[in-house]
């Protein structure tokens, strides 16, 4: 059970959160211009990395805010959290 440091509310138990999958996948501004393959790339393709992964989490049972998390999936350690719209920390690749 993770302990997640919500950027707004502080450290909370994982059960207060819901996970939203990979972060920094921007919804295309003009979906109609995209080919099937390009749209599929946005819609379906996810990295699922062993190692450092950027994820979206929602403090669903708290402030209801979405935010980003840097997590090492090999040991589940959360390395950093940052708000939506903020740039990912540069020291993680």
């Amino acid at each position: 059970m993770f302990l997640i440091n919500c950027p707004f509310c502080g450290e909370r138990d994982q059960s207060e959160f819901s996970s939203g999958g990979e972060a920094h996948i921007v919804r295309p501004k003009q979906p109609t211009e995209l080919s099937d393959d390009e749209w599929a790339e946005y819609l379906f393709m996810r990295k699922n990395i062993k190692g450092i992964q950027f994820e979206r989490w929602n403090h669903a049972h708290g402030c209801r805010k979405w935010f980003n998390v840097v997590r090492d999936t090999s040991n589940d350690k959360i390395l950093s959290v940052y708000k939506m719209g903020e740039k990912p920390p540069v020291n993680y690749k």
Binding site: R27, N58, A60, R64, K65, W66
Partner: peptide, 10 residues
């Protein structure tokens, strides 16, 4: 939750 997601992120 889905609507909040779009509002906050997209």
């Amino acid at each position: 939750s889905k609507l909040e997601d779009y509002l906050q992120t997209e």
